[in-house]
Design a binder for these strands. Sequence first.
RNA 1: GGCGCGUUGGUCAAGGGGUUAAGACGCCUCCCUUUCACGGAGGAAUCACGGGUUCGAAUCCCGUACGUGCUACCA
Length: 507
Amino acid sequence: MKKVRVRFAPSPTGGLHLGGVRTALFNYLFAHQHKGTFVLRVEDTDQSRFVEGAEQYIWDCLDWCGILPDEAPLLPGDTGPYRQSERKEIYMQYAKQLVDSGHAYYAFDTTKEIEDLRDSLKAQGESEWQYGFHTRHRMRNSLTLPKAETDALLGANFPHVIRLKVEGNEFVRFTDMIRGEIEMSTNTVDDKVLMKADGMPTYHLAVVVDDYLMKITNSFRGEEWLPSAPVHVLLWKYFGWEKEMPEWAHLPLILKPDGNGKLSKRDGERLGFPVFAMQWKDASGNTIDGFKELGFLHEAFINMLALLGWNDGTEQEIFSLQELVDKFSMDRVHSHGAKFDFEKAKWFNHEWIKKSGMQRLAPDVKEIFRKNNIAISDEKKFEQVIELVKDRCTLLTDFVEQAKFFFVAPAEIETSAILPKWNSDKNQFFAELISLYSRMKLWDLVDIEHAFKELAGASRLKPGELMLPFRVFLVGGKFGPGVFDIASMIGKEETIKRITFGMTGLK
RNA sequence: GGCGCGUUGGUCAAGGGGUUAAGACGCCUCCCUUUCACGGAGGAAUCACGGGUUCGAAUCCCGUACGUGCUACCA
C-alpha cells in the first residue's frame, strides 16, 4: 500500500503556483495508480509567515483541479494533526531522542555571533563558512561546553537550537526514482538546525518525523530539495528507521520562459500569464487571477501540467485525469527542468474546449456570461450557440466575444470595415432584403440563405460583397460563425432590427 | 567559491550504439471556408564543444563550456 504526501508552506507572498500544483498532481497520480493514500500537510512553522485562509485556498485549488487529497488539515485522517504548529511537542521529543543518542546537540551561538563570524572570515578571504564537522568544536554548544554549563544554560532557558551532528568523511548514498543512484560526501553537509530557538522544527526534522509517523512510502518534491536530501537520509539513519525510509523522487523545476531561473510568482505579472491555479489575494489586498479566472478548463490545466516534465513516450498529448492515473510512471519523469510556455498551455485549453461537449461547457460559460451581464434568454439556443462557437474559443472567456451577439445586439458597429465599399446599390439591396425577410413565413436556415442569394442575383450584385456588411450588421464586426447560422439563430425580428440599425449608422 | 543536478530545432520533446533524428507548440506557404476560426497539405529550424571506446556514437566514457539548484534558526 503506497502512501504519499505533499507539503505546502503558505506564505503572504503567494498562492498555489504551477510547481506546487504539479507536485500535488504527481503525488495524486502515483497514489491513485497504486490505490494508495494521498496526504496534504500544511507547514505553518513560522507564525509570521502563515496566512489565514491559506489552507482553504489550497483546498479549493486542488478541488478545482479534481485532485483532492485523502487526508488534510481540513479533512483529518488517522495521523493528524496536520498543522505543523500543533505538532511542536512531537518534534521536540524526537529531537531530544537524537541528542540522547549522540546524533544531535544543543547550540547556544546566536544568529548575530554566527553572522559576525562569517563576515570576519569573509573579510580575511575565506569564501564560505559552515557550522559543521570542521568547525563545531570551536563553537558554543553542548559538545564543547562542560555538561554543567550546558545544563545551566538549558535550565536558564538561554536561547538555543538543536543541531544535527553530521559525521565527517562518510558517503551518503540513496536512490532517486528519477535520477537513479546518488552519492554525496558528508563533508559538504553542514550541521543543520533541527529545532529553532522558538521551539519550532525546521523542514528537515519535520519532514522526516512526519513521514515516519505517517508511514509515507514515497516522498516526491521539487528538485531544489536534492542538495539537502543527504540530511534527510542521515536523519532516517540516525533515528534507526532506515528500513522504513520512503523512496525519493525529485521533480524537475519549472523554469521561466525567458530563461534564467525557476518560475517565480512575480514572473506571471512581468510576462503576462498566470502562475497560480486560482485567484489569490495577497497580504496587501491585491488580487492576482489564476488559470481558472483566465478561462482555463481544469482538465486542460492538469493535462498541461502533467506534460510539463513527463510524457508516456507516445505521441499522445491530450490525457484525462483517469488516463494520467493509468499511464503515469515516475521513471518517465524528466531529470531536467522545462521552460514554461504559455502558448502551449493555451493550446491545451483550446483542445479541451473543442473536445468538451455542451454539457461540460455550459455551466462554466453561464458563469462567465453572468459576470459579463449577458442574459441568457433561451436555454436551448444557448446550448446550440456553445456548440456553434466553441471551436473558435481558446479560453472560456472567449465565449463572451464569440457568443455575446447571439443574445445582445452589438452596441457598436465596426462601420470602418464596410464604409469604404458602401454604395447606393448595396443600400438598395439591404432595403429590399428587409422587406423580403419580413414577408418570409418560415425562418429556416436554407431559406434565409437562398432568399439572400436570389435577391443578390436579381440585383446583379456578388453575394460575397454583401455578406461582409450583413455580418457586421449582425455581430458588429468581422468575426463569428457563418452569417446565415447567426441570422437563423437570432430570429427574423432581430435580424431585421439589426440590419435596419446598421444601415442607419452608414448614412 | 564549494557541492549537486542537467544539456536533442525558438519552446515542449521521442529516441538509450546502425533511424531519411518522430511528434507537438509557435512561425511561414497553400487548400477548404464569400469573415475569423476549425480542418487538410506542405515548409524553415536541432543532437553544446573537445577528446576517447567502437567497423559505426545524438546514444557509452572522460574533460570543458553553459544552464540550473542548494550553500538560513525559508521552505
